[in-house]
Write a protein that binds this DNA or RNA. Structure first.
Lengths: 338, 338
DNA sequence: TGCTGGCACTCCCCCGCGGTGAGTGCCAGG
DNA sequence: CCTGGCACTCACCGCGGGGGAGTGCCAGCA
């Protein structure tokens, strides 16, 4: 068990190291923080903390730096979430107002997050899985070619081409459009399959093939697009990483280009609370010296997607968490309005 | 005027430097290339080339490296466009086939280009300005709220919310939809404004306000979206830049996040031929040590958008140009098919 | 006139050197 | 259990000397 003071020492080490980016020694600690004890005492505490694996020294007879485990303890027990200053809050509001498009909202969110945290920002587009259908549109492009357009309540639009097995008349098209919409508008995506299951039966024989094709395309769209799109930004902030550049930055850039990896990263935050993954806690190898702070956001009480930032394990956790949380709230608000 | 052999020397210098990334000296040159003259002669030639500003030495008594002007001459006069090997061609085909979506096509193109050139790839979405309207759809979301969906012949979809000044009935809506489409489908965006100019007049008084609002939203969409979207990839390749990292890579990453900058970069290639901007020829300061190879692509004979790569001035120009050109052709082909 | 070999010179790069200082572990005393 | 003192470790820095690649120039030769 760690005494109160030792936790205090750990907190001081984390704070100093995050600020200076240099291993912190016992003497410097007692000077910068009022711990009320001598360097020698701090040294003993440090030895204990090192035994427990919370801190480490890069080289013998150098200062200490926090380990992943140390950061974890810091985040869990020692650090709060630092609320944003009111100028910052105002900046968010100014920046997000004036967004028109869904694309625009996401783009602005990314820029904002990157700017506030000075790290790499990742924003997932509002999910289709949990959203509902606002409208399904069918357009005839050629006698046997349709376009299917799906509009979600989050403002997202997906389109697909449909090649019909047989020509499909305008009246049949209007019919299908109407029946389809009356069944699925306002419903959740997950409910759609059973809602349209019996639809082909109510059509003329020659049209059934086309109706089935359209439906299966629709269902495909729902499933496929569960692989969400996302947007990233602020990669230039990676240059603040450390001095041993190429080795650190390369795998991170690579990971950032793998949508799958990023989605997994955000996805691990299953609950609606904030998730912090530190260093090796990230499954992906290239991100073993980075931390991910993610949180869900949504238009209602329910999260429809995630957003977060990726930065060095040595980051200002309270500040970052505050910014991430604040931005998520604002985006949710904006989505609810539209 | 430069003699034939001096040009040959320049070519050799460029090729060696691109390969080794190290200043190249007279002796090494004569060993690696069969110039048929002695190092001393090459030295004289080098001195001449340096006087003319084609090459420079980083430090006194070091080898020479090409200047921007040297690369320019190399690209203009000395280098051809290296065609891809047939395995590479096959790889392109394999990679691009199976793209369904327009998004998918663009995404695959980016990955492909980045992989082939081992540089940063930039692909602009097919332009709206030169495309034609495939369909305009109007959906009623609420009594006084519409959604406008614009579908282009390149498969792009844009949607906008429209708040109506007055409720708008379903019959009026169908009417407007029909008339709008009969006028604009198949027409170029630039022609749309005059084609719909007199449309409000033919509607009942109470509907005119709404019709006007819808039309102005449509026109806005056409104009606004002339600011094209684009996609980038392969940023991890930036790590191969040089050893003096942070200074070089940071401004590049920053520039890459500025859509405006990138669009300008690609946009400078006004003609349909390939454009190569070398080093300081790029207006943007942060890109003064990078070169941009860009080319237009399109579904028909006309270019509808641009794509290209951004890499160090020290790049394999013939190979890069070959890859860029080949990819552009394939993408054009694929767009034409859909 | 233009090419060549030779020669002296210039610097960058690498490596090994010792001094400095921050930091540590340990110990004895309060 | 905390503290001051002490010896030790080791990364960092600046210095200096070889080694080597490359250059410029010059005199000789076709």
């Amino acid at each position: 068990m760690l005494s109160e003071r030792r936790l205090e020492v750990l907190r001081a080490i984390v704070q100093d190291y995050v600020g200076t980016e240099e291993p912190v020694g016992s003497k410097a600690l007692t000077e910068r923080h009022k711990l009320g004890v001598s360097p020698a005492t701090v040294r003993n505490d440090m030895a204990a903390l090192e035994d427990e694996g919370f801190i480490a020294q890069p080289h013998t007879s150098a200062g200490r730096i926090p380990t992943d485990k140390g950061y974890r303890l810091f985040v869990d027990k020692l650090a709060g979430v630092k609320p944003l200053s009111s100028p910052e809050r105002r900046a968010i509001q100014n920046f997000m107002d004036g967004a028109v498009d869904l694309d625009d909202v996401v783009a602005r969110t990314v820029r904002l997050l990157a700017q506030l945290t000075r790290q790499v920002a990742v924003v997932q587009y509002p999910s289709l899985t949990r959203s509902t259908v606002r409208h399904v549109e069918l357009l005839s492009l050629a006698p046997a070619r349709l376009m299917l357009v799906l509009i979600t309540d989050t403002g997202r639009v997906e389109q697909r081409m449909v090649d019909c097995p047989a020509p499909f008349g305008e009246t049949s098209l209007a019919d299908l459009r109407a029946r389809l919409n009356s069944r699925v508008v306002g419903r959740r995506f997950t409910d759609v399959p059973q809602l349209v299951q019996d639809l082909p039966e109510s059509f003329d024989k020659e049209d059934r093939g086309t109706v089935s094709t359209v439906l299966s395309t629709l269902l495909e769209t729902l499933v496929e697009e569960t692989e969400e799109r996302l947007m990233i930004g602020g990669t230039a902030n990676l240059t603040r990483f450390g001095h041993d550049f190429p080795l650190t930055i390369r795998p991170v850039l690579e990971a950032l280009e793998e949508q799958v990896v990023l989605l997994k990263l955000l996805g691990e935050a299953t609950d609606s609370g904030m998730t912090v993954r530190i260093g090796h806690e990230n499954a992906h190898e290239g991100l073993s010296s980075t931390s991910v702070v993610a949180v869900g956001y949504g238009s209602g009480d329910e999260a429809v997607a995630k957003l977060g930032v990726v930065g060095p394990t040595r980051m200002d956790y309270p500040g970052t968490m505050g910014a991430v949380r604040a931005v998520a709230r604002y985006v949710g608000q904006i989505l609810a309005e539209s």
